[in-house]
Computed example of a mutant assay.
Amino acid sequence: PKALEEAAAIDGAKPWQIIWHIVIPISLPAIITVSIFSLREAWNEFPFVLAFTTSQDMRTLPYQLFMLRDSMGMQDL
């Protein structure tokens, strides 16, 4: 809330202190959530790997693990 930032400014906090001690702790759950979802979506981007890579050396780890599992004949139980 803007009132917290204004209260900190009135109490003499500098702009970087307001960001570090008020804004970041309040927005930390959102930052963590976005980070987790971004990591999960980046991990599972098989179509982009297939579209943008031309050799096996350029493929990403998740896709290589998927291909390894598929080539060894392992099944999900």
Rank of each mutant, 00 (worst) to 15 (best):
P1D: 10
P1C: 09
K2F: 13
A3N: 11
E5D: 03
E5I: 00
E6A: 11
A9P: 03
A9W: 02
D11V: 12
P15S: 08
W16Y: 10
W16H: 09
Q17W: 09
I18A: 12
I18W: 11
I19W: 03
I19A: 00
I19H: 00
W20D: 09
I22G: 06
I24Y: 10
I24L: 15
P25M: 08
P25A: 07
I26Y: 13
P29T: 07
P29Y: 10
A30P: 04
A30Q: 05
I31V: 10
I31Q: 00
I31G: 05
I32T: 04
T33A: 15
T33P: 02
V34S: 13
S35R: 03
S35E: 04
I36C: 02
I36P: 12
S38L: 09
L39N: 06
L39R: 03
L39Y: 14
R40S: 13
E41C: 05
A42Q: 10
A42T: 14
W43A: 13
W43N: 08
W43P: 06
E45F: 09
E45M: 09
F46K: 08
F46S: 01
P47A: 14
P47E: 10
F48Q: 04
F48W: 05
F48S: 08
V49I: 05
V49S: 07
L50E: 10
L50W: 08
L50C: 08
L50H: 03
A51Q: 05
T53N: 09
T54I: 01
S55M: 07
S55H: 12
Q56H: 08
D57N: 15
D57Y: 06
D57G: 02
D57I: 04
M58A: 03
T60K: 04
T60R: 02
L61D: 01
P62I: 00
P62E: 02
P62T: 01
Y63A: 01
Q64K: 06
Q64W: 06
Q64V: 03
L65E: 09
F66W: 09
M67G: 07
M67K: 10
L68K: 02
L68A: 06
L68V: 02
L68G: 05
R69Y: 04
D70H: 13
S71H: 12
S71E: 14
S71I: 00
M72S: 08
M72P: 05
M72K: 05
M72A: 09
M72L: 13
M72I: 00
Q75G: 11
Q75E: 15
Q75S: 08
D76Q: 13
L77M: 02
